[in-house]
């Protein structure tokens, strides 16, 4: 399943990242890497943007970008 399908308040582990180089790099520097535990904090009303937390880093990303992150 992909990260955009994870419910608010739930956690999961990242298995693969299928992003192009630039996005992958960005993910990387925030700690969005294989094996990290990701927690969903919030979705916006229109479900276009979401807030996640990995360790101590909170970040916002678009749902279209979360689609590129596989979790289990």
């Amino acid at each position: 399943m992909t990260l955009n399908l994870l419910q608010k308040g739930k956690s999961a582990t990242i298995t693969t990242i299928n992003a192009e180089k630039e996005l992958k790099n960005r993910f990387n520097s925030f700690g969005v890497v294989k094996g990290a535990t990701v927690h969903v904090e919030q979705y916006t009303l229109a479900k276009q943007t979401m807030e996640i937390r990995i360790n101590k880093t909170r970040m916002a990303l678009r749902v279209s970008e979360a689609e590129k992150v596989e979790i289990s």
């Binding site: 630039e22 960005r26 969005v32 909170r58 970040m59 916002a60 990303l61 678009r62 970008e65």
Partner: peptide, 10 residues
Amino acid sequence: DEPFVMEMPK
């Protein structure tokens, strides 16, 4: 579009 990924500071 450019990626949106952005930190939310404390």
